[in-house]
Computed example of a mutant assay.
Amino acid sequence: MTDVQVTIAGTGSYLPGDPIDNDRLEKLVGTLPAEVLDGIQVRRRHWMIDPVDGAHLTSNSRMAEAAARRALAHAGIEPEEVDLIVLSTASPEFHLPTAASYVQEHLGLERCALIEVRAGCVGAVQALDIAFRQLADGTHRTAVVIGAEAISPLLAPMFLGRDPDAVRMRDRLTLFNFGDGAAAVVLRGGSDTGTHRYGYVNACLGGHRAPGMRVIGGGTDIPLHEQRNRKRLIDIALDANGVAEYGPRVFVTALRELLDRSGLRLEQIGACVLPEGNAEYFTREFADAGLSEADFALLQTLVVENLADVGATGSPAVLLALDDGLRGGRVRPGENVMLLAIEASRYVYAGLALRWPETVGK
């Protein structure tokens, strides 16, 4: 078995419904202090539910399909050419079958290899690495890597049917933070001019720490008949203080390891694509985490993210920022690009460094 060249052929994204700005959300769930809103820096988000009555307007796998079709169209590749789908999500329609199998169905593919990663922000980077490896060794030829998240159905019970003034402040913080969506990247094996890939890193630093975020309910942590006694069937528990304290240390560790693994210096990077790299609650502790003032200043010029426009979206976050950065000219041909994500759930990080192709898309 010989290694083959792998290239990024196209990107695409999908955001459901109309954007919900902070003024509209405030009328539904109550207000957040101005300094808190400034800290999280989310101005609008998209939800797959109707925010008035909670009705589902689409689904996780349909959003994933839409993003995949846009990425395939950008690449000039027909869906029937896809022989590998790698999907990351923490919010599928069902525990089984996998959401990836529904994407396969929606794309009209009778036969396709499927891999599903259960993760949040780091999942799409992990999925890209898996796809790169399987195309490079010739196992498959055309892969669609997708991050998709349907978080709003978990948020609806926090505010539906309630007086906005009665919604708890910690729930409002969650409600203002999160958004839904999907994004995809098409990879092609056998290209004469492959995407140069420098290195990949992945680790969990939370083995001795409490989780920064948990999605509770619907699992097997306690008997199902006991779960019915919980205040909510499904709930999101976010340790905002813990994430603000420890998240930057995880990020700096990931950044240093990726630079070391890739053999690159920060000055050689053209773009650093992050899930939420400019959020003040996330960046304010970088200096204490060991990032020099000069490197911090340089990093701010390299960051590509769109948190303000889409919210914290979990699995699609890095790919949404990548697609937005590519179309906005912030990810440029021939430059070294880092895709770097940390995930609060158990303080996981994943990073991929590569040279962006000279041409992406047909």
Results as ranks from 00 to 15, higher is better:
Gln268Phe: 05
Gly247Gln: 09
Gly247Trp: 00
Glu267Asp: 15
Asp260Arg: 15
Gln300Gly: 02
Ala287Trp: 02
Ser292Arg: 03
Val273Trp: 01
Asp295Thr: 00
Phe282Trp: 11
Leu264Asn: 06
Arg256His: 15
Ala279Gln: 14
Arg265Thr: 14
Asp288Glu: 15
Glu280Cys: 01
Val243Asn: 02
Asn241Val: 14
Gly247Ser: 03
Leu266Thr: 04
Tyr281Ile: 01
Arg256Phe: 08
Gly290Asn: 01
Leu255Tyr: 08
Gly270Cys: 07
Ala254Ile: 04
Gln300Asn: 15
Asn241Phe: 11
Thr283Val: 10
Val273Ile: 06
Phe286Gly: 06
Glu267Gly: 10
Gln300Ala: 02
Asp260Gly: 10
Phe286Lys: 02
Phe286Ala: 04
Gln300Cys: 05
Asn241Trp: 03
Leu264Phe: 09
Glu245Ser: 03
Asp295Gly: 00
Ile269Asp: 04
Asn241Ala: 15
Glu280Pro: 00
Ala271Val: 07
Leu258Thr: 03
Arg256Asp: 14
Leu255Cys: 04
Asp288Trp: 09
Asp288Asn: 14
Leu259Trp: 02
Asn278Lys: 14
Glu285Pro: 00
Ala287Lys: 11
Asp260Met: 08
Glu280Gly: 01
Glu285Cys: 00
Ala254Val: 05
Arg256Ser: 10
Asp260Leu: 12
Asn241Ser: 12
Glu257Met: 11
Tyr246Gly: 00
Phe286Met: 12
Ala244Gly: 14
Phe286Arg: 08
Tyr246Phe: 14
Leu255Gln: 06
Pro248Asp: 00
Glu267Thr: 12
Leu274Thr: 07
Ala254Trp: 07
Pro275Met: 02
Asp288Arg: 14
Asn241Arg: 15
Ala244Thr: 06
Leu255His: 08
Pro275Phe: 05
Cys272Trp: 13
Ala289Arg: 03
Asp260Val: 11
Val252Phe: 07
Ala254Leu: 10
Leu298Asn: 03
Thr253Ala: 08
Asp260Gln: 15
Ser292Gln: 06
